[in-house]
Amino acid sequence: MLNAQQAPDDRYQRFADLAPFVREAIDTIAALTPAQRVDVDFLEQEFIPALGLNDELLHEQPPELAPSFGKGLHLWQYPNQLAPYLAWLARNAAGITSYMEIGCRWGGMFILVAEWLRTSGADLKRVIALDPIAPTPFIATYFDLLQEQARIEPIYMQAFSTSPLVAAHVDRLKPDFVFIDGDHSLRGAMQDHLLVRAHASIIVHHDIHSQACPDTTWLWKALREFEAPSFDAFEFTSQYPSVNGAFLGIGAMKRRSAQA
C-alpha cells in the first residue's frame, strides 16, 4: 500500500476527475430492488462491472472483464467473488450500526459496502475508514455527501492500524462490522483481527485465497478453525479459468450470538 508521499500526483488527479461518479454509484446502489440485491448472476454479470474495476496488476485479472478496467469505483475484486458476498451482506445487514474498513486505499470498496449496508436494512450510524494515505478524492466526495445528509457520521483515520491512537478509537467507537484489507503480513493481519474482535459481530478478511498473499491465505485457514467456537465462516473464493493462478478471495465471519 502506498503512503501519502508515494502516491503519484497524476493518480490522485485521475480519481479527482472520476469523483463525480461517486454520487452516480450511490444512486445506482439505492435503485436496486430487494430481489436484485440477492440475485448473484445479476450482480456478477451486470451490476458490479458497471460500477468499474481496478486496472492494476492486470495479470491477476480476467481479460474478459477488460471493458470495466480503470473505470468508476475501481473495485479491486472479482465479480464472481464480490457478487455472492454482496448477496450474503444483503441478508445479514440488519442490526449493523457501524462499518469500519482497515485499508480503504482509493475508497471504492468502502463506498460500495457502506451504501450496500445502508440500503439493505442496516441502521447505519457511523462509517470509519482507516489508511496511512490521506483521504482520496473518492473518500472526500463520499464524506461530503454523507455530511450533507447529516444521518451517518463519517470518520477518517490517517494512520497505521498498529497506532495506539487507532486502538483507542476502536475501543471508543466499537465498530460492529469490519473489513480487513490492510497489512497483508501474517502478523499485521492477525493484529488487525485482534484489534476489532472484541467488538465486531462481523469480521471480513480479504485475500484469503491468493497465491500473491500467502500470509493472509494461511491466516484465514487458521482463523476459520480457531474461531469456530464463536464465529460461523463464509467463503467467496471463485476463480476465473482465464487467469493463470488463484487470487483475491473474501472470507466473512459472523459471531454466533448474532442471528445467522
Rank of each mutant, 00 (worst) to 15 (best):
K254A: 13
E115K: 02
L2E: 12
G70Q: 06
F69T: 03
S201I: 15
Y99S: 08
Y142D: 00
T141S: 09
R255N: 11
D232G: 05
K174Y: 09
T136C: 07
L248R: 07
Q36Y: 10
Q77R: 09
Q211M: 15
D10P: 03
P63G: 01
F177L: 12
G245F: 02
V113W: 07
D131H: 01
P175C: 04
Q149W: 01
A114D: 05
L173A: 09
I203T: 07
E60I: 12
Q36V: 12
P229L: 03
Q6C: 06
E115W: 03
Y12V: 09
V170I: 04
A87T: 08
E24H: 12
H169D: 05
Q13P: 03
A140F: 06
E60G: 10
V166W: 01
E153M: 04
L51C: 00
G245P: 00
D144G: 06
D10G: 07
P20T: 02
I102Y: 00
L18K: 10
R23K: 13
A252C: 04
S201C: 15
G107K: 01
L146T: 00
A4T: 15
V22T: 00
W116L: 08
A31D: 08
N54M: 14
A129R: 00
L51R: 00
S68G: 08
Q45S: 08
L223Q: 01
A4W: 10
L89Q: 08
F236L: 02
D183W: 00
E24K: 13
L65S: 03
Q61P: 07
S210V: 07
A66V: 06
A150S: 10
L173K: 09
I152E: 00
Q61S: 10
A83G: 05
W218P: 08
H169G: 11
A87I: 10
E24W: 12
Y85W: 09
A114P: 01
D9Y: 11
L173I: 13
V178S: 05
A222P: 08
S185I: 04
V127S: 00
Q191P: 03
R151W: 09
W218Q: 15
Q259G: 13
R187Y: 11
S230A: 14
D207S: 01
L195V: 09
A222E: 14
R37P: 02
L75Y: 01
D181N: 03
L248D: 14
L32D: 07
D215V: 06
P132R: 09
V196S: 04
F143V: 01
Y85C: 05
V243Y: 03
R224K: 14
D17F: 11
C104Y: 06
P8Q: 09
